[in-house]
Amino acid sequence: MKKEDSKPTLEARRAFLAKLGGAASCAGVVVGAATLGVVPAIAAKTGAPPDAGSFPTKDYDWTKHQWGFGVDATKCIGCLRCVEACKNENEVPRNAHQFRTWVERYVHLEGEEAVRIDSQQDPVNIQASGSEKEFRFANRYKDAKVDKAFFVPKLCNHCAHPACVQVCPVGATYKTEDGVVLIDHDYCIGCRYCVQACPYGARYFNEEKGVSDKCTWCYHRITKGLQPACVEVCPVGARIFGDQKDKQSPISLFIRNNRVQVLRPESGNAPNVFYVGIDKEVN
């Protein structure tokens, strides 16, 4: 084979080989450095926390809590103050199409088979509130013959097996030790696969920030001993929040004293928002 090489190529080849040799030795050094330096670096990133202090804040240790949320739909009056509070608390875009929490209204009219469902994003309700930035249920059924009607608050279910976390390609959404599903807005690439994967429609895409967003159970509040904003403002106690590890917490009592159900149990997501008083159509 070598015979066929012309002279200039031979020289070129030698030069190339010399370079390659250099490169190889460089690579060797780097690999050596890697085994010495990088591996401990990875170990530090994957290993146990360097300090034994509480996480994520000084005063809050997430291993001591397991949060849960209850909705008593029999109490909800559809005032939508929860939606208002949530939009204020969490910088949710002020429009009638993107929500971290929302309220649905189910109405059975006499003589009608199908249930009528609307929420604050319905044009009739936007008209009643006067603007896409305000939220109010129009009294559209006041003259109708209503067989049965009720309101159902909705929010992220913070599932035990969240489909959204499963599909996130980068690890920008995750389940915390205390049972909350969060989104890392500084790491999300904005592919919206999670929005598609959520069977509950709990996620939306924040165009301004270029990332997905959803309810966090007001993680910044609950880690400071406060209630989530929607729970705080609910005037009728339709929203219940608490620590499932504390047997006397509102949520533990709510689950113990009621026959609770979850939305779309067949999805296998195992939600952590527990409902009382919802009907067969609610999902």
Binding site: V38, A41, Y219
Partner: peptide, 28 residues
């Protein structure tokens, strides 16, 4: 070297993002 700090500390995510979210100021 490109993996952000605190990634993998508890799982497949940036542990620091939990700290960042918990540090936000309550509005209500």
């Amino acid at each position: 070297f490109l993996v952000p700090d605190s990634f993998y500390r508890f799982g497949h995510y940036r542990a620091n993002s939990v700290i960042e979210i918990a540090a936000q100021e309550p509005v209500l």
